[in-house]
């Protein structure tokens, strides 16, 4: 483990963040549906629409989580300061690599939506937001980490995006989680 995650993270932290993300993505889809089929003709209008701004912010947060690591994500800070003190100690800790990679997957999916909307592609924004919502919902409600499974697929081919160096090692079973 490195400085990011000397003892692993509380697995409830990423699920808490995923719940917030899923809610915001559902709002994005709801707000974007009305004009999804017929995007505004001019770029200035399209990029000033609320669903676009919200998805762009979410995409930036995903990027933050991927580059800085899940332990430095703002939702993680909220979880650590407000939520975790009210919970019992986690039964186990997990490596930050999987959730961090999942942030990267979330960034790619939402960035595709942002680009499609900028390009004026009908349903591009709500389609991407809907796909990202399903992944975030599965993570928060069922603890299914789609990004972690995708990471395994890449790792089997020797592609780890450097995450093994950043977060490598087995999480210790100690009670000092980073988030």
């Amino acid at each position: 483990m490195n400085a990011h995650s000397p003892s692993g993270i509380d697995p409830r932290g990423p699920r808490f963040g995923a719940a917030i993300t899923a809610t915001l993505l559902l709002i994005t889809v709801g707000a974007g549906l009305e004009t999804a089929g017929t995007p505004a003709a001019d770029l200035a209008t399209r990029v000033s629409e609320f669903p676009f701004v919200l998805l762009t912010v979410l995409s930036a947060l995903f990027l933050w989580g991927f580059i800085g690591g899940i332990t430095r994500h703002p939702y993680g800070a909220i979880f650590k300061k407000i939520v975790r003190p009210r919970l019992s100690a986690p039964e186990f800790l997990e490596s930050a690599a999987g959730p961090t990679f999942a942030q990267g997957v979330g960034f790619v999916v939402t960035a595709v939506g942002v680009v499609l909307h900028i390009s004026g592609v009908p349903f591009g924004l709500v389609g991407a937001a809907g796909a990202a919502f399903i992944a975030a919902f599965l993570n928060s409600v069922f603890a299914y980490c789609l990004g972690c499974e995708i990471y395994l697929v890449f790792a089997k081919r020797g592609i780890t995006f450097g995450l093994d160096r950043r977060f490598g090692g087995t999480p210790a079973e100690v009670s000092d989680p980073q988030i």
């Binding site: 690599a97 603890a143 990471y151 790792a155 977060f167 490598g168 087995t170």
Partner: peptide, 12 residues
């Protein structure tokens, strides 16, 4: 795998 959260729960 290193990034597998449930694995850490199952191992003990």
């Amino acid at each position: 795998t290193e990034m597998c959260g449930p694995c850490a729960a199952l191992k003990p």
